[in-house]
Design a protein around this nucleic acid. Structure first.
Length: 154
DNA sequence: GCCAACGTTGGC
DNA sequence: GCCAACGTTGGC
C-alpha cells in the first residue's frame, strides 16, 4: 500500500465528522488543484492509507487514519452551478476534477501536531512541513508514515 | 486579522 | 510567453 495525507479544516469536516458519516465513508470532493487531483487520479489505490490532517485551526495536527475505498471518479460538485466548488470548465463528458472515497480507520491516540512534525529531524523532507506548501493531498513515504506512528506512541 | 507563499488569470 | 494582479491557503 501507499501512504497519503489529506487536509481538512475541522470546522468544515473533522475526523469526528468522518467517523459519524454513513459507513464512516465520505467523498473527498472540492479538490481544485491539479497536483492534488493528479495524486488522486494517478496514485491513490483502494486500500492505501491516509493521514487525516486538521488544517487552519487552533492546533494543526495529524489526528487520524483513513483508507481509500473508491478510486478516482468525477467530482460531481464541479457540475453544479449552485455549489461553491462549481467549475464551468468541468463537463460531465470531460470531467476536469476528480474525487476519491475514504473510510475512517481510527483516530490517533493523540494528535501529532504540526509543531512536533516540524521539530522531528527525520521529517525534515516531509512535504507537509516544507514552507509554503498548500497542497491538500500529498504523498507520504513509508519512513515518514512509520515515524509519525512512533511519535503517536511517544 | 495579518501576511507569506503560491496558483491562476488575463492583458499585452 | 511574460508578468502583474488577484484569489486562496493556512500558519501564526
Amino acid at each position: 500500500v501507499a501512504y497519503w495525507l489529506m487536509k481538512s479544516e475541522p470546522d468544515v469536516f473533522s475526523i469526528d465528522a468522518l467517523h459519524a458519516s454513513p459507513k464512516r465513508t465520505t467523498h473527498w470532493d472540492g479538490v481544485r488543484n491539479y497536483q492534488a487531483r493528479n495524486f488522486m487520479r494517478d496514485g491513490m489505490k483502494n486500500g492505501d492509507e491516509v493521514f487525516f490532517y486538521h488544517s487552519n485551526c487552533e492546533v494543526p495536527a495529524i489526528v487520524g487514519i483513513a483508507k481509500v475505498v473508491r478510486e478516482a471518479y468525477p467530482d460531481h460538485t464541479a457540475f453544479d452551478p449552485d455549489d461553491p466548488h462549481f467549475d464551468p470548465k468541468s463537463k460531465p463528458e470531460a470531467p476536469a476534477w476528480l474525487m476519491v472515497d475514504i473510510q475512517f480507520v481510527r483516530k490517533l491516540k493523540r494528535p501529532v501536531t504540526l509543531q512536533e512534525l516540524k521539530a522531528q529531524p527525520r521529517l525534515q523532507s516531509m512535504a507537509l512541513v516544507r514552507k509554503g506548501n498548500r497542497l491538500s493531498v500529498m504523498s507520504v513515504s513509508d519512513e515518514e508514515w512509520q515515524t509519525v506512528l512512533e511519535m503517536e506512541r511517544a
